[in-house]
Every structure is written in C-alpha cells, then in structure tokens.
Amino acid sequence: MPPAPQEQSGDLATYTGYLLRRAQQAHVAAWQKYVSDEISSVQFGLLSILRRTPGHRSACSAMSSTSTDLPSPMSPLDWSGAA
C-alpha cells in the first residue's frame, strides 16, 4: 500500500516515473549530440524498418498514430542514408 500523502518522500529520485523521464531526457540529449539533431531515434527506427522492407509503407501510419515526434510529411527526409 502506498504511503499516506504526508508520509511521501520529497525526493524525486524515489519516484520511478521521474527516473524514467530523466533517462529519456538523457537519451534524447545523447542522441542529438552523438547521432543527429535533425532526426529522432524514433524516426531513425522507422526509417530503418522501411529501408529493410521497402514495400511495407504501412509502418508509417502505424507509427504516426502512436508517436508525436514523427515528421508530418515523411518525404523531405533522406531515405537513402537512414541505416
């Protein structure tokens, strides 16, 4: 049973959601520094899948319905050098 509100720790590092968010922020920062500041890891993943299976463009619609950081028109991206 979770502790009563008055007994909860004020230390954010004890909350799983906070730690997950910090890890995600660290991942984005490292991705932008070492890989690309023009394409996200989610976009890269999608483009990698599409490059391996060029006939399966339906992955775009599946990913765009669940992710907010995919580009609206995918056409401006360089599909040839994605993977």
Rank of each mutant, 00 (worst) to 15 (best):
A59E: 10
S40R: 08
Y34S: 13
L70M: 15
H56G: 03
Y15Q: 01
G81N: 10
S40D: 11
A13Q: 07
S36F: 13
S40Q: 12
M63V: 08
L77H: 06
A26I: 05
M74F: 06
Y18R: 02
I39A: 07
V28L: 02
P2V: 04
R21M: 10
S80D: 09
S48I: 15
G55I: 00
E38V: 13
L46K: 03
S72P: 11
S72K: 13
S36G: 03
A4I: 09
G17L: 06
P5W: 14
S61V: 04
A30W: 05
Q8T: 05
T14E: 01
T68F: 04
Y34K: 15
P3D: 07
P76D: 08
A26M: 12
T14H: 02
D78R: 13
P5V: 08
S75I: 09
L50R: 14
R21E: 06
A30I: 04
V28M: 02
T66Y: 15
W79E: 09
L77M: 07
Q32E: 11
P2K: 09
T14A: 02
A29W: 02
I39F: 10
T68V: 10
T68Y: 06
M1D: 13
A82F: 04
I39P: 01
D69H: 07
A83I: 14
H27C: 05
C60R: 09
S80C: 08
T53K: 11
T16M: 00
S67H: 10
P54D: 10
Q32N: 11
A29M: 05
K33I: 04
S48Q: 10
S40K: 02
A82Q: 08
L20S: 03
M1S: 15
P3H: 14
L12R: 08
S64H: 05
I39R: 02
R21K: 09
P2S: 13
L19N: 04
Q25A: 08
L46A: 14
T53W: 08
L47W: 02
Q25V: 01
A83Y: 14
P73L: 01
E7V: 02
L19K: 01
S41W: 04
A26P: 01
P3V: 11
T53I: 12
D37C: 07
L20C: 10
T53P: 00
Y34N: 15
Q43M: 12
A23Q: 01
P71N: 03
M74P: 15
P71S: 03
K33E: 14
G10W: 08
W79M: 10
S65T: 15
A26L: 06
M63R: 07
S64V: 02
P76V: 03
P54L: 03
P3C: 14
E38F: 05
M1H: 14
S36I: 15
R57H: 05
A30K: 11
Q8I: 09
A30E: 06
I49P: 00
S75W: 13
Q8H: 12
S67Y: 11
G10T: 13
G81Q: 03
A83N: 11
V42M: 14
S9E: 02
M63C: 10
S65Q: 12
R51L: 09
L47E: 11
D37R: 12
L46I: 06
V42Y: 11
